[in-house]
Design a protein around this nucleic acid. Sequence first.
DNA 1: CGTTTTCTTGAGATGTGTCAATCCTCGTGG
DNA 2: CCACGAGGATTGACACATCTCAAGAAAACG
Lengths: 211, 211
Amino acid sequence: MKYYRSFEAGQTVIWSGDKMDFVASVVSGVATLTKTMEDGRRQMVGLLLPSDFVGRPGRAHAAYDVTALTDLVMCCFRKAPFEEMMNTTPHVSQRLLEMTLDELDAAREWMQLLGRKTAREKIASLLAIIARRDASLGLRPAKGKVAFDLALTREQMSDYLGLTLETVSRQMSALKRDGTIVLASKRRIEIPHFDALLAETGDDNDGGVLT
Amino acid sequence: MKYYRSFEAGQTVIWSGDKMDFVASVVSGVATLTKTMEDGRRQMVGLLLPSDFVGRPGRAHAAYDVTALTDLVMCCFRKAPFEEMMNTTPHVSQRLLEMTLDELDAAREWMQLLGRKTAREKIASLLAIIARRDASLGLRPAKGKVAFDLALTREQMSDYLGLTLETVSRQMSALKRDGTIVLASKRRIEIPHFDALLAETGDDNDGGVLT
DNA sequence: CGTTTTCTTGAGATGTGTCAATCCTCGTGG
DNA sequence: CCACGAGGATTGACACATCTCAAGAAAACG
């Protein structure tokens, strides 16, 4: 009923439309959900970090392409027994509901990014999101210079942001030129002043803590 | 614990950040969820038709602006007793999970629209979505010419699609010129050949039924 | 090392945004 | 009943952000 599967960076976990008789959660590594149009246009619609859930109870086929961004380990449950467990253990569906609501909130913030932000704001937002998600997984010293390795290529960033990879590259160069970010290497990002990055996201960054 | 509230078209149900001590579902009418940026840029992130759910168990403040698009009746539950009910009646959170997963799927399709579709494809997609949602509520004769009243102004359409209202207007005119849609009035839409509209959405429209 | 993938940068094209004028449509009050 | 006003919609001219196409440079890899 429960088993582990490993994937190498770049491997496809499952294609949209494929039969999917399991649900899973990410144990380690990073994976993406993407939608692809007939002519090849691609939009990433989910970024899965450890503890994130994949698959939908009550659906037999995958709705998205799932791809391993880094080496990846997933913990899979056969769907039938999992659904049985949902019926017998009410706590499970409550927990799943909470996680799904979190994802829905994230999706809506993402929609705002896609629909209304400029290319520069999109890049800044993505970097802030990744920095924060890494931090919440406890990979980050609480204080001090923020720095992290980017698991995404420029092209994958463009799929996330609804841009072309050239525009991503240009805006990364612009943020670097302005000193908002420092590129130790192409994929190693340092952020000298996190507030300065946040100021570039276009988000409301003082009303954040409602009382 | 349970009560009804009515709103007139255009009224605000609740502002983002306001205290929200209830959850609710739409009884009749149409409402929207929108996010607003400091400088006024707005993105719609939810379109609520009858039976749709608003509010998040376990959250004290509204995350989005909720606005009545048409005259609206909502059925509200005080949050505390509702959460109690979720604990005692497992079926409730299971049903809520299903609805939330549906919304998440819709949000991801919306992300693809916002990130990768052209203005023309966006308009065609929106019209197809509304036509289908109306149909699923049983407002539509199964066969015959598809026609419906648009609850959205051009500006609200632009908020949905991540466009300006001028671009929406121009693309509506273009679709009309091409005969894909017929405007009986500004808000009354007729679609002579639904397949022709679908062909403009950019979506995969034959692989839909996977075997 | 060669080879391939990824990334950067430039020049020019184009789709959508901006600003502004005008036109409908419909409700209201004279 | 008509004139008026206000909000919504359309259209034009132009600006500009982003895309496209193309050439190279820099890393990654065997």
